[in-house]
Nucleic acid binder design. Structure first.
Lengths: 222, 222
DNA sequence: GTCTATATCCAGATAGAC
DNA sequence: GTCTATCTGGATATAGAC
């Protein structure tokens, strides 16, 4: 929350400068192609400070990783209070991911476009981290309340978010040249066809839209 | 074609041993966490041989990269002669990708799950390589002949392949525990809903399935 | 072509003055 | 806490015998 929002021209904290510089370098060149000296130079601090604050390069990466996961969780939490139906929630999440890909590119690139396991040994895959679990939870609830056709949870999540994530990758690779929000409606239209349950498959409680606000959302279990 | 098919117990070529060992190590630990000594040990050859054959670690990676892209192109080419409609072709490609994810895991992991630009500087993103262009070409033809609803080519490609690729990633990350082919039908069912053109949007030449074999396929432009 | 032994380099990490 | 200078390990790459 406190780092990386630093568009202010005020003198930043040392931590913030280091993290911001590291994020930019990691995203541009990849973790292993960035040396502590590179970070030190870009952040305009000394090597000693880096080791004092973060214990080393991996410490920086860890801090960044958890910090950005936390920001992402905040985003998802925000969506959960703003919206009610699973469909609205997924759409809003995709919309925000698209926006951030343009306005906070490095964050999205670090979270969605890096192989964290290659430099954070012992970390589980990022898709098992809280915000991603929360996104799957949204879909699970949609299936439970009849809003989304019931199927394997992984398949459902991939069907809903797969094409959007693919577009983000293509955009980050700079093969897609238009800002992603421009494609939002087209993507969402395609996404939801085939997601509605047919009358036969989930005949029980069909109440697509009438969930009272915050209907038993159990997502903040991070 | 000649490497990596080496399930024979016959004594393999030195090149093949080196590439195979490197592939396994790169996929397991990531390019930058593998040293030439690691490869040398795993392939049971000397350092000298490695430098003689490939000029160094990056040379190995380059050779692997182009070799595997070539194998993938062969797979796509095979699909193009076996099938006719765009839908059949996409389905078959996804089916094969799912199969290979189980039976030739390292190949799929190297091609689809590594950040090549971090160790092959100067290479364009892999999605601009021939087999991926060919896959988009299939979709473009599907849109041209009215088989697929017309939309932005990137969006269409992401809609068709996005969820499948996402499932492959999840499988490679070992969060999905079932073999992917088990999900094939579920995935494909979801994929094609919403892909059909409605009567209004593409009213011209509606002939969904009656393309005579190899109808002007211009894909082998690699 | 294949190997071992060696050279060179540079990244990560530390020590210790201020 | 911050800095500079230094140490050390390990990686890539080479030399040169066979």
């Amino acid at each position: 929350m406190h780092y990386l929002k630093c568009e202010s021209s005020a003198p930043e904290s040392v931590d913030g400068r280091i993290l911001k510089a590291a994020l930019g370098l990691f995203v541009k060149s990849g973790y292993h192609n960035v040396s502590v000296h590179d970070i030190q130079r870009a952040a305009d601090v000394s090597i000693g400070s880096i080791y004092n604050h973060f214990g080393g390069k991996e410490g920086i990466a860890k801090a960044l990783y958890f910090h950005l996961l936390n920001e992402m969780q905040g985003m998802v939490d925000g969506v959960l209070v703003e919206t009610e139906s699973a469909r609205e929630r997924c759409n809003r999440i995709i919309e925000l991911l698209f926006e951030y890909t343009e306005t906070r590119r490095d964050i999205i690139a670090f979270v969605l476009h890096q192989r964290h396991q290659e430099f954070l040994p012992g970390e589980p895959p990022i898709c098992s981290a809280a915000p991603f679990r929360a996104m799957r939870e949204v879909i699970q609830q949609g299936m439970d309340n009849g809003e989304i056709r019931r199927r394997d949870p992984w398949v459902a999540a991939s069907a809903v978010f797969g094409s959007a994530i693919r577009m983000i990758h293509l955009r980050l690779d700079e093969v897609v040249n238009e800002p992603l929000p421009r494609y939002l409606d087209e993507i969402l239209a395609g996404t939801w066809q085939g997601m509605e349950p047919d009358a036969a498959s989930s005949p029980k409680k069909r109440k697509p839209m009438d969930l009272p606000g915050q209907s038993g959302v159990v997502v903040s279990d991070r």
